[in-house]
């Protein structure tokens, strides 16, 4: 057993928690809980960023931690909760693949992600390099969640969770992206959610449901 310093252990724990939360989201059918899990993931991410900032002394990381906290823990969940109430979508319907199957697929994805991360891990010399695999897993798991859900709401949350993964990956591979890029991405996410929110209302007005299979009827009949 190697003795890792405490902050390293904490960072690893944060990474594991992120993965845990991704899997929890994968197995969750209630949209309200999904939003809460997303907020929790944001919080863990903020904590990890803060830890890394403290460890490396890179000031811009403090800023991104604050940004994460404000945007992903407070604002977006609040917005989503509001959306849920307004749209009255509390539950997703039966997912396309059952939960055990999804989880099993998730497991395979994690193995794959770690295989993928190995060369990066060998190149990077950051303290958090072992977490790159987890970041990729989070991205791919979020993708998987988007694939298996029917309701647009859960897909948006999947999209947001994916962004969390990207953020965490950038952070652990190279101590975060340049501030400009980070701000840009944050803005993008914000705008995307707002646009999608508007979209939801449009979809519901058109089909009286948020179930995405209705969109299939939009294709041209042959």
């Amino acid at each position: 057993m190697t003795h890792l310093p405490l902050d390293q252990q904490l960072l690893d724990s944060c990474a594991a928690l992120l993965l845990l939360l991704s899997f929890a989201m994968l197995s969750q059918r209630r949209i309200v809980t999904l939003v809460n899990l997303y907020a929790l993931q944001g919080a863990v991410l903020a904590a990890a960023t803060l830890l890394l900032a403290w460890r490396t002394g890179e000031d811009h990381l403090y800023l991104s931690a604050a940004l994460t906290l404000a945007l992903k823990v407070a604002f977006l969940p609040w917005l989503l909760h509001r959306l849920i109430r307004r749209l009255d979508v509390y539950w997703d319907t039966e997912p396309l693949l059952n939960v055990s199957g999804t989880m099993l697929a998730g497991l395979v994805i994690v193995v794959f992600a770690f295989a993928l991360a190995q060369p990066i891990t060998r190149l990077a010399d950051t303290a958090t390099r072992s977490a790159v695999g987890i970041a990729i897993s989070v991205v791919l798991l979020a993708f998987l969640m988007m694939i298996t859900r029917r309701k647009a709401m859960s897909q948006v949350i999947g999209f947001l969770s994916m962004e969390n993964g990207v953020f965490f990956g950038a952070m652990s591979a190279s101590y975060g992206m340049p501030m400009v890029v980070e701000l840009g991405v944050a803005l993008d996410v914000l705008v995307a959610v707002l646009v999608l929110g508007v979209f939801f209302f449009q979809i519901r007005e058109r089909f009286e449901s948020l179930d995405l299979h209705h969109l299939e009827s939009l294709k041209e009949h042959d």
Partner: peptide
Amino acid sequence: IPEFLATAFLFAVLGLLVHVLLGA
């Protein structure tokens, strides 16, 4: 219930995976 327990099983397996991957 099997879904619930399969989740438990997979979490345990994931723990194993994380152990091997992160080495802790």
